[in-house]
Computed example of a mutant assay.
Amino acid sequence: MIRVLLADDEAMIRAGVRAILSADPGIEVIAEAGDGRQAVELTQRHRPDVALLDIRMPRMDGLAAAAEITRTAPRTAVVMLTTFGEDDYIARALSEGASGFLLKSGDPHELIAGVRAVADGAAYLSPRVAHRVITELSGGRMSHGAAARRRTAALTPREREVLALVGAGMSNAEIARRLHVVEGTVKAYVSAILTRLQVRNRVQAAIIAYEAGLIPDS
């Protein structure tokens, strides 16, 4: 069972998101928060698998809450849920350690897919958000590519292989099946990769993999 904390200052939005998630028998909303500070406190108390956070909330916004949750409850994956698709929100959310970014105007199936993906150790961006990120990366790839290649050069060949699969959006279980190893081995590789690259999560590692040319454009 995937345990989810839901944070949004609008009760009707929380009710709608809860209804969508409840349609999946493998997902349970265990706590709800109406502001960012409460979201942090409930996450520390309940340790959910996923914290689903609105960006604009009182007391503490979702971006600040994401940073605090990734610092104090690193086993909880953070997904940002918002009506705002501006690039600065996307970049800030990813820099604060979010593993996913979903738009409230997206398909309800994306919500369930996103929660399941990050709970399984993968990263998830809604298609519209992914397009923005890839477009931005494509514009800056020439300037960032050399630095990214230097960073990935410190990895072993196996670590680069795992990083490429992380960049392709695969979960630990999918990578394990692809490489014919146990999932625990993949987790160890991913942990080592994040440490060597000095990044906070899989999304940031995936960006480096893209800039370094380890995964193809798509």
Rank of each mutant, 00 (worst) to 15 (best):
V4I: 05
L5K: 03
A7Y: 10
D9V: 02
G16V: 09
I20S: 06
G26E: 14
G34L: 04
D35I: 00
G36E: 12
R37L: 14
E41L: 10
R47I: 03
A51W: 06
R56H: 15
R59Q: 14
L63I: 15
T70R: 15
R71P: 06
P74V: 01
P74R: 04
M80R: 01
T83P: 00
F84V: 07
F84C: 05
G85H: 09
E86M: 01
D87F: 13
D87W: 13
A91H: 11
A93L: 07
A93K: 04
A93F: 09
S95M: 05
G97D: 12
S99L: 13
K104N: 10
L111K: 05
I112Q: 10
A113C: 02
A117H: 12
A117S: 14
V118Q: 07
V118R: 05
A119Q: 11
G121K: 02
A122W: 10
L125G: 07
P127H: 02
R128D: 14
A130L: 14
A130P: 08
V133P: 13
V133L: 14
L137H: 06
L137K: 10
R141H: 04
R141K: 14
M142D: 13
M142G: 00
H144W: 10
A148H: 08
R150H: 11
L155G: 11
T156E: 12
R158A: 12
R158C: 00
E161D: 14
V162C: 07
L163T: 04
L163W: 09
L165H: 11
N172E: 10
E174H: 03
R177F: 01
T185K: 07
K187I: 03
V190C: 03
V190S: 02
V190F: 04
L194I: 04
L194N: 10
T195Y: 05
Q198I: 00
Q198G: 07
Q198H: 13
V203L: 15
A209K: 05
I215C: 05
I215M: 13
P216K: 04
D217S: 07
D217F: 02
